[in-house]
Simulated assay, not measured.
Amino acid sequence: MPKAHKYPYILYLAINNKRWNEQQQLELLCVNDKLEYKYKQCSTLTNLRYLNNHTSIRFISPVEPITRCHFADEKCMIEQAHKLFEKAATGVPENDIPALEPLKLDKIEMLGDKNSALKIDLIMNDVEIHNYTKARVTSIKGFSKDLSKPMKLVSQNINPRITIKSKYKINGNILVLPIRGEGELTMVLDNLKTRFSTTLKVEERDGNHFLSGDTIKLETQMDNVHIDMTNLFNGDKTLSESMLQVMNYNWRLLSDDLTPIINEALGNKVKELLLKFFKDIPYEDYFLAD
Protein backbone atom coordinates (compact mmCIF):
# COMPACT_ATOMS: atom_id res chain seq x y z
CA MET A 1 0.00 0.00 0.00
CA PRO A 2 1.47 3.40 -0.93
CA LYS A 3 2.42 5.46 2.04
CA ALA A 4 0.86 8.85 2.66
CA HIS A 5 2.33 11.88 0.95
CA LYS A 6 1.64 15.57 1.32
CA TYR A 7 0.52 15.85 -2.34
CA PRO A 8 -2.72 14.17 -3.52
CA TYR A 9 -2.48 11.18 -5.86
CA ILE A 10 1.27 10.71 -5.23
CA LEU A 11 2.37 7.07 -5.03
CA TYR A 12 5.64 5.33 -4.28
CA LEU A 13 6.06 2.35 -6.62
CA ALA A 14 8.16 -0.73 -7.08
CA ILE A 15 9.10 -0.73 -10.75
CA ASN A 16 10.28 -3.86 -12.55
CA ASN A 17 10.06 -5.69 -9.23
CA LYS A 18 12.69 -3.43 -7.73
CA ARG A 19 11.92 -1.51 -4.55
CA TRP A 20 13.41 1.97 -4.76
CA ASN A 21 14.87 3.49 -1.63
CA GLU A 22 13.83 6.87 -0.27
CA GLN A 23 16.08 8.83 -2.61
CA GLN A 24 15.28 6.74 -5.67
CA GLN A 25 11.51 6.68 -5.32
CA LEU A 26 9.71 7.88 -8.42
CA GLU A 27 6.77 10.23 -7.95
CA LEU A 28 3.89 10.06 -10.35
CA LEU A 29 0.45 11.54 -10.53
CA CYS A 30 -2.15 8.98 -11.50
CA VAL A 31 -4.90 9.61 -13.98
CA ASN A 32 -8.00 8.65 -12.07
CA ASP A 33 -11.53 8.59 -13.46
CA LYS A 34 -12.83 8.95 -9.92
CA LEU A 35 -10.76 11.72 -8.42
CA GLU A 36 -12.48 11.44 -5.05
CA TYR A 37 -10.16 8.52 -4.33
CA LYS A 38 -7.05 9.85 -2.64
CA TYR A 39 -4.80 7.10 -4.00
CA LYS A 40 -4.99 4.63 -6.86
CA GLN A 41 -2.60 1.88 -7.87
CA CYS A 42 -1.12 2.64 -11.29
CA SER A 43 -0.53 -0.40 -13.47
CA THR A 44 1.23 1.26 -16.41
CA LEU A 45 3.89 3.87 -16.94
CA THR A 46 2.52 5.33 -20.15
CA ASN A 47 2.39 9.05 -20.93
CA LEU A 48 5.31 9.85 -18.64
CA ARG A 49 7.18 13.10 -18.76
CA TYR A 50 10.84 12.62 -17.90
CA LEU A 51 12.39 15.26 -15.71
CA ASN A 52 15.92 16.01 -14.58
CA ASN A 53 17.61 13.67 -17.07
CA HIS A 54 15.23 10.82 -16.20
CA THR A 55 16.16 10.83 -12.52
CA SER A 56 12.50 11.34 -11.73
CA ILE A 57 9.29 10.60 -13.60
CA ARG A 58 6.00 12.45 -13.27
CA PHE A 59 2.67 11.23 -14.63
CA ILE A 60 0.52 14.22 -15.43
CA SER A 61 -3.13 14.04 -14.40
CA PRO A 62 -6.13 16.25 -15.12
CA VAL A 63 -6.39 19.11 -12.66
CA GLU A 64 -8.19 18.15 -9.47
CA PRO A 65 -11.19 18.15 -9.18
CA ILE A 66 -11.86 18.05 -12.95
CA THR A 67 -13.62 14.88 -14.11
CA ARG A 68 -14.21 13.37 -17.53
CA CYS A 69 -17.27 14.04 -19.66
CA HIS A 70 -18.91 12.38 -22.65
CA PHE A 71 -18.34 14.31 -25.87
CA ALA A 72 -22.04 15.13 -26.24
CA ASP A 73 -22.50 16.19 -22.61
CA GLU A 74 -22.19 19.99 -22.80
CA LYS A 75 -23.68 20.39 -19.33
CA CYS A 76 -20.87 18.30 -17.88
CA MET A 77 -18.22 20.29 -19.77
CA ILE A 78 -19.67 23.57 -18.47
CA GLU A 79 -19.55 22.20 -14.92
CA GLN A 80 -15.89 21.26 -15.36
CA ALA A 81 -15.13 24.71 -16.80
CA HIS A 82 -16.54 26.29 -13.63
CA LYS A 83 -14.41 23.98 -11.51
CA LEU A 84 -11.36 24.93 -13.55
CA PHE A 85 -12.10 28.64 -13.13
CA GLU A 86 -12.36 28.11 -9.37
CA LYS A 87 -9.10 26.17 -9.30
CA ALA A 88 -7.30 28.64 -11.57
CA ALA A 89 -8.16 31.55 -9.29
CA THR A 90 -5.43 30.36 -6.91
CA GLY A 91 -3.21 28.82 -9.60
CA VAL A 92 -2.45 25.37 -10.99
CA PRO A 93 1.26 24.90 -10.20
CA GLU A 94 1.35 21.36 -11.62
CA ASN A 95 0.59 22.90 -15.03
CA ASP A 96 2.76 25.99 -14.45
CA ILE A 97 -0.33 28.22 -14.39
CA PRO A 98 -0.09 31.15 -11.94
CA ALA A 99 -3.00 32.44 -9.88
CA LEU A 100 -5.49 34.16 -12.18
CA GLU A 101 -7.11 36.27 -9.51
CA PRO A 102 -6.22 38.81 -10.56
CA LEU A 103 -5.19 37.94 -14.12
CA LYS A 104 -2.06 39.95 -14.93
CA LEU A 105 -0.92 41.42 -18.25
CA ASP A 106 2.35 43.25 -18.71
CA LYS A 107 1.21 45.97 -21.09
CA ILE A 108 -1.68 47.15 -23.26
CA GLU A 109 -0.78 49.81 -25.80
CA MET A 110 -3.03 51.87 -28.06
CA LEU A 111 -1.60 54.25 -30.64
CA GLY A 112 -3.68 57.16 -31.88
CA ASP A 113 -6.05 56.47 -34.76
CA LYS A 114 -6.84 59.67 -36.61
CA ASN A 115 -10.17 58.28 -37.82
CA SER A 116 -11.57 57.25 -34.44
CA ALA A 117 -13.12 58.96 -31.44
CA LEU A 118 -9.95 58.17 -29.49
CA LYS A 119 -7.10 60.09 -31.11
CA ILE A 120 -4.77 59.17 -28.28
CA ASP A 121 -1.59 57.37 -27.38
CA LEU A 122 -2.40 55.21 -24.34
CA ILE A 123 -0.01 52.90 -22.51
CA MET A 124 -1.30 50.70 -19.68
CA ASN A 125 1.35 48.92 -17.57
CA ASP A 126 1.06 46.38 -14.75
CA VAL A 127 -2.47 45.51 -15.84
CA GLU A 128 -4.66 43.51 -13.45
CA ILE A 129 -8.05 42.06 -14.40
CA HIS A 130 -10.10 41.32 -11.29
CA ASN A 131 -13.00 38.83 -11.05
CA TYR A 132 -12.06 37.21 -14.36
CA THR A 133 -12.53 33.72 -12.88
CA LYS A 134 -16.05 34.60 -11.66
CA ALA A 135 -17.46 34.15 -15.14
CA ARG A 136 -20.47 31.89 -15.70
CA VAL A 137 -19.91 29.69 -18.74
CA THR A 138 -23.05 29.36 -20.87
CA SER A 139 -21.81 27.33 -23.84
CA ILE A 140 -18.92 25.09 -24.94
CA LYS A 141 -18.97 23.57 -28.41
CA GLY A 142 -16.43 22.04 -30.77
CA PHE A 143 -14.66 19.17 -29.00
CA SER A 144 -14.72 16.12 -31.26
CA LYS A 145 -13.88 12.41 -31.32
CA ASP A 146 -12.54 12.89 -34.85
CA LEU A 147 -8.83 13.65 -34.38
CA SER A 148 -8.04 13.70 -38.09
CA LYS A 149 -8.86 17.38 -38.50
CA PRO A 150 -8.65 20.59 -36.44
CA MET A 151 -11.43 21.39 -34.00
CA LYS A 152 -13.20 24.75 -34.04
CA LEU A 153 -13.89 25.48 -30.39
CA VAL A 154 -16.39 28.17 -29.34
CA SER A 155 -17.15 29.06 -25.74
CA GLN A 156 -19.35 31.79 -24.28
CA ASN A 157 -19.57 33.21 -20.78
CA ILE A 158 -21.08 36.04 -18.78
CA ASN A 159 -19.35 37.96 -16.01
CA PRO A 160 -21.44 40.31 -13.84
CA ARG A 161 -18.52 42.68 -13.24
CA ILE A 162 -14.86 42.86 -14.20
CA THR A 163 -12.50 45.53 -12.90
CA ILE A 164 -9.34 46.43 -14.83
CA LYS A 165 -6.61 48.30 -12.96
CA SER A 166 -3.31 49.59 -14.31
CA LYS A 167 -0.77 52.33 -14.38
CA TYR A 168 -1.37 54.55 -17.39
CA LYS A 169 0.12 57.28 -19.53
CA ILE A 170 -2.10 59.11 -22.01
CA ASN A 171 -1.77 61.96 -24.49
CA GLY A 172 -4.04 63.07 -27.34
CA ASN A 173 -7.67 64.00 -27.91
CA ILE A 174 -11.00 62.40 -26.99
CA LEU A 175 -13.97 63.70 -28.95
CA VAL A 176 -11.86 66.76 -29.97
CA LEU A 177 -11.07 67.49 -26.30
CA PRO A 178 -7.36 67.35 -25.33
CA ILE A 179 -6.32 64.86 -22.67
CA ARG A 180 -3.03 64.13 -20.97
CA GLY A 181 -1.98 62.48 -17.76
CA GLU A 182 -0.03 59.76 -15.99
CA GLY A 183 -1.27 57.85 -12.96
CA GLU A 184 -3.64 55.02 -11.98
CA LEU A 185 -6.49 53.83 -14.22
CA THR A 186 -9.57 51.85 -13.18
CA MET A 187 -12.18 50.50 -15.60
CA VAL A 188 -15.31 48.71 -14.37
CA LEU A 189 -17.16 46.62 -16.97
CA ASP A 190 -20.70 45.55 -16.08
CA ASN A 191 -22.45 42.40 -17.33
CA LEU A 192 -19.63 41.44 -19.68
CA LYS A 193 -20.53 38.83 -22.30
CA THR A 194 -17.54 37.13 -23.94
CA ARG A 195 -17.32 34.78 -26.91
CA PHE A 196 -14.07 32.82 -27.29
CA SER A 197 -13.26 31.10 -30.57
CA THR A 198 -10.14 29.21 -31.59
CA THR A 199 -8.96 26.35 -33.76
CA LEU A 200 -7.35 23.49 -31.84
CA LYS A 201 -4.91 21.22 -33.60
CA VAL A 202 -4.11 17.68 -32.53
CA GLU A 203 -0.52 16.50 -32.16
CA GLU A 204 0.51 12.88 -31.60
CA ARG A 205 3.29 12.07 -29.16
CA ASP A 206 4.22 8.67 -27.77
CA GLY A 207 0.96 7.13 -28.94
CA ASN A 208 -1.24 9.81 -27.38
CA HIS A 209 -2.89 12.95 -28.69
CA PHE A 210 -2.36 16.47 -27.36
CA LEU A 211 -4.11 19.73 -28.17
CA SER A 212 -2.33 22.85 -29.34
CA GLY A 213 -3.99 26.17 -30.05
CA ASP A 214 -3.58 28.87 -32.63
CA THR A 215 -4.83 32.41 -32.13
CA ILE A 216 -7.79 33.00 -29.82
CA LYS A 217 -10.40 35.53 -30.88
CA LEU A 218 -12.42 37.33 -28.22
CA GLU A 219 -15.63 39.21 -28.89
CA THR A 220 -17.26 41.13 -26.05
CA GLN A 221 -20.42 43.03 -25.25
CA MET A 222 -21.16 44.91 -22.05
CA ASP A 223 -23.93 46.93 -20.45
CA ASN A 224 -21.77 49.72 -19.05
CA VAL A 225 -18.19 50.90 -18.60
CA HIS A 226 -17.07 53.30 -15.87
CA ILE A 227 -13.60 54.85 -16.09
CA ASP A 228 -11.58 56.62 -13.41
CA MET A 229 -8.08 58.06 -13.93
CA THR A 230 -5.95 59.73 -11.28
CA ASN A 231 -3.65 62.68 -11.99
CA LEU A 232 -5.20 63.81 -15.26
CA PHE A 233 -3.93 67.23 -16.33
CA ASN A 234 -1.27 67.11 -13.58
CA GLY A 235 -3.95 66.78 -10.93
CA ASP A 236 -6.19 69.66 -12.03
CA LYS A 237 -9.45 68.68 -10.34
CA THR A 238 -11.80 70.75 -12.49
CA LEU A 239 -10.35 69.56 -15.81
CA SER A 240 -10.12 65.96 -14.57
CA GLU A 241 -13.74 65.79 -13.42
CA SER A 242 -14.98 67.34 -16.65
CA MET A 243 -13.01 64.93 -18.83
CA LEU A 244 -14.08 61.85 -16.82
CA GLN A 245 -17.70 62.98 -17.07
CA VAL A 246 -17.37 63.20 -20.86
CA MET A 247 -15.66 59.81 -21.07
CA ASN A 248 -18.22 58.00 -18.92
CA TYR A 249 -21.18 59.62 -20.70
CA ASN A 250 -19.75 58.45 -24.04
CA TRP A 251 -18.49 55.09 -22.72
CA ARG A 252 -19.92 53.05 -25.59
CA LEU A 253 -18.22 55.14 -28.25
CA LEU A 254 -14.91 54.92 -26.41
CA SER A 255 -15.19 51.19 -25.71
CA ASP A 256 -15.69 50.49 -29.42
CA ASP A 257 -12.10 51.66 -29.95
CA LEU A 258 -10.46 50.47 -26.74
CA THR A 259 -12.09 47.07 -26.22
CA PRO A 260 -10.53 45.36 -29.29
CA ILE A 261 -7.06 46.31 -28.01
CA ILE A 262 -7.81 44.82 -24.59
CA ASN A 263 -9.36 41.72 -26.17
CA GLU A 264 -6.26 41.09 -28.28
CA ALA A 265 -3.96 41.26 -25.25
CA LEU A 266 -6.30 39.08 -23.22
CA GLY A 267 -6.62 36.56 -26.06
CA ASN A 268 -2.85 36.19 -26.22
CA LYS A 269 -2.75 35.56 -22.47
CA VAL A 270 -5.55 32.98 -22.61
CA LYS A 271 -3.73 31.18 -25.44
CA GLU A 272 -0.55 31.05 -23.34
CA LEU A 273 -2.46 29.56 -20.39
CA LEU A 274 -4.33 27.01 -22.53
CA LEU A 275 -1.11 25.76 -24.11
CA LYS A 276 0.35 25.18 -20.65
CA PHE A 277 -2.77 23.28 -19.66
CA PHE A 278 -2.93 21.14 -22.81
CA LYS A 279 0.73 20.33 -23.37
CA ASP A 280 1.11 17.49 -20.85
CA ILE A 281 -2.38 16.00 -20.59
CA PRO A 282 -3.46 13.59 -23.36
CA TYR A 283 -6.73 14.50 -25.06
CA GLU A 284 -7.99 10.99 -24.26
CA ASP A 285 -7.87 11.86 -20.54
CA TYR A 286 -10.49 14.62 -20.85
CA PHE A 287 -13.38 12.50 -22.13
CA LEU A 288 -15.15 9.26 -21.39
CA ALA A 289 -15.53 6.59 -24.05
CA ASP A 290 -19.08 6.59 -25.47
Score class of each variant (00 low, 15 high):
35 L>I: 15
149 K>C: 11
144 S>W: 11
144 S>R: 13
12 Y>L: 08
284 E>H: 01
259 T>D: 12
213 G>C: 14
2 P>M: 12
285 D>F: 06
87 K>W: 03
101 E>F: 01
107 K>N: 07
95 N>F: 04
106 D>T: 12
100 L>R: 04
286 Y>D: 00
22 E>L: 04
5 H>D: 11
249 Y>W: 11
133 T>A: 04
273 L>M: 04
228 D>G: 10
191 N>K: 15
284 E>R: 03
177 L>Y: 08
93 P>Q: 12
57 I>R: 14
251 W>D: 12
169 K>Q: 08
63 V>L: 09
222 M>G: 01
167 K>H: 15
141 K>D: 14
170 I>Y: 08
184 E>V: 11
95 N>P: 00
268 N>H: 13
48 L>N: 01
183 G>E: 11
150 P>F: 01
221 Q>M: 09
34 K>F: 07
285 D>R: 12
46 T>P: 00
211 L>C: 00
88 A>P: 01
121 D>S: 00
235 G>S: 05
110 M>G: 05
18 K>E: 14
138 T>D: 04
229 M>E: 11
52 N>S: 05
52 N>L: 05
258 L>K: 10
47 N>T: 06
171 N>H: 12
82 H>R: 15
36 E>N: 05
155 S>R: 03
235 G>C: 09
224 N>W: 14
165 K>R: 15
22 E>F: 06
62 P>S: 05
38 K>D: 07
213 G>S: 15
160 P>C: 02
270 V>Q: 02
258 L>H: 08
235 G>Q: 06
213 G>A: 15
68 R>F: 00
83 K>D: 03
35 L>S: 14
52 N>V: 03
173 N>Y: 14
31 V>Q: 10
107 K>W: 04
230 T>Q: 11
239 L>H: 04
201 K>H: 12
89 A>H: 00
169 K>R: 12
250 N>D: 08
94 E>K: 03
12 Y>C: 08
234 N>H: 03
158 I>N: 12
16 N>W: 01
25 Q>L: 02
189 L>Q: 07
49 R>K: 14
214 D>C: 10
275 L>T: 09
283 Y>Q: 06
155 S>D: 00
186 T>E: 12
140 I>F: 07
232 L>F: 09
30 C>Y: 09
18 K>W: 05
189 L>D: 04
116 S>Q: 14
216 I>W: 00
289 A>E: 14
290 D>A: 09
97 I>P: 03
106 D>W: 05
66 I>T: 12
182 E>D: 15
246 V>T: 10
29 L>I: 07
152 K>R: 07
